[in-house]
Each structure stands twice: as structure tokens, then as C-alpha cells.
Amino acid sequence: MTPETLAALRAARAARRVEVLATRLPDGAQLRLPDAAAPAALQAEAARAAARDESRIMDCDGESWFLHVHAPPPRLFIVGAVHVAQALAPMAATAGFAVTIIDPRRGYATAERFPEVTIEPRWPDEALRALAPDAHTAVVTLTHDSKLDDPALDLALRTDAFYVGALGSRKTQAARLERLAALGHGADAIARIHGPVGLPIGAVTVAEIAVSILAQLIAVRRNGRALPSATGGVVRSTHSRDGVPPEACPMSQDQGRLA
């Protein structure tokens, strides 16, 4: 691989552009696709591989090529620069998500609390409108403040985001869903919200809650919306013992804590 090819692949990733690196086997000659000058069969196969996000070897005019799909990372927008977000952001980044923290409250959304994380200080609806969640984006609200969470959820439900999650007890969740229904969201839209958020692993600490949220995000991304439970049944995200204890709100005391 030439340094120029490496630089181009990194630039495509930064620009959130899918590129396919075609490598001829066994000599290692390389092409970056799409490229109008490349053989038509190679271009067509590269487009198919890119659409499926699946790298593979193909034969083209008697030559063997490895088509390596370089897709940009999925995005995670976390609304609320709270304590759980401090645990979730680095875990999600390690798992390959491009993380953005959205919180207009300057005391929470600081670089000291979120080193190396993109911070978006606009109001959640304004920020999400600009960031335009797509089918490779997850949105998780963690503020417990309906003034911040509701506009974010309202906007997220109008996008193709593959995952929408909201931290909060079942009671909080029921009231939230009523407010979203009043904003005109139908039952199907509201059913997209994973809340209380996270897989039911009995999470108690901030880090454990972050693990349960990240695990659910990955499960939905890789397997679809419903998950098989340990007993062979199907657990929906509205399960009564999700990551956060149903009647408690473990984060309520953290709202005023800044470190």
C-alpha cells in the first residue's frame, strides 16, 4: 500500500465517505473505487460490496481481487453530558462509534469531563437537525430533563436512526411517551424508543449502565430490534427489568455533580 492510498482511505473515513480498496491477488496492485477508469465488472462488484458493507474476493477477467470495504464508523449522539455519558463515550469509541456529546449546559459539556470527544453545545433539536442522523446513527438521551430529552427524541424519531434510546424509569418513560404522542408521533414511531434504556443485566453503577446501553446498541445494530433472551424467548427493549432499575432514577443525584 502506498502512503498516498493510506492517506486517501483515512481522508475518506474522516469525510464519512465509503471507499472500496481493490487489491489484486497475489501481486498486491491496488485501486480505490469508485473509479471511472476501473473495469466495469470490478466497479459493479465494489458497489455491491459497499452496499452490503461486506468485504470479499471476486474474479474479474481471470484475475482475483480482494474488495475491502472501508465504511465510515457508525455515529452515536449522546444527549446529556452527564456521568453515564462519561462512561459511555469512551466505551462506545472503543467499540468503533464516532461519538458526539450534545449538551447546551456549559458546566456539564466540558473538555475536561469529555477528553477527546466531540462536544456539540447547541440545543439538542438544533444540533440533531444539523448533524442529520441517518441509518448508521444511534441517538441516546441521558439528561432526565424533558426540556432537553424531548426535543431530541422528537427529532430523532423523524430520522432513520437505527437506535433511539432514552434513560429514565418506567414511570418517566410513560410520561415521556405521552408527551411525544401529543407531538404527533404514532405508536410505531414511539415503539422505536428503547426505554428504559439498556439490556437487562442488572446494571447499578454508571459504568455498568453504560455497558448495558452499549450492548443494546450493538445488539440492535447487528441483530435487529428484538433480542433472544437467555431463556429462548424474545426480550423487547421495553422489558420491565432493563439496564436501569425500573422505579429508581440512579442518575438523579448526579445531575448537579460535575466530576
Binding site: R13, A89, T94, G96
Partner: peptide
């Protein structure tokens, strides 16, 4: 923070 899959 390091994406453990991105070796480039």
C-alpha cells in the same frame, strides 16, 4: 480514544 478496529 482508540477504535480497536481502525488500524490505519
Amino acid at each position: 480514544m482508540i477504535d480497536t478496529e481502525d488500524m490505519l
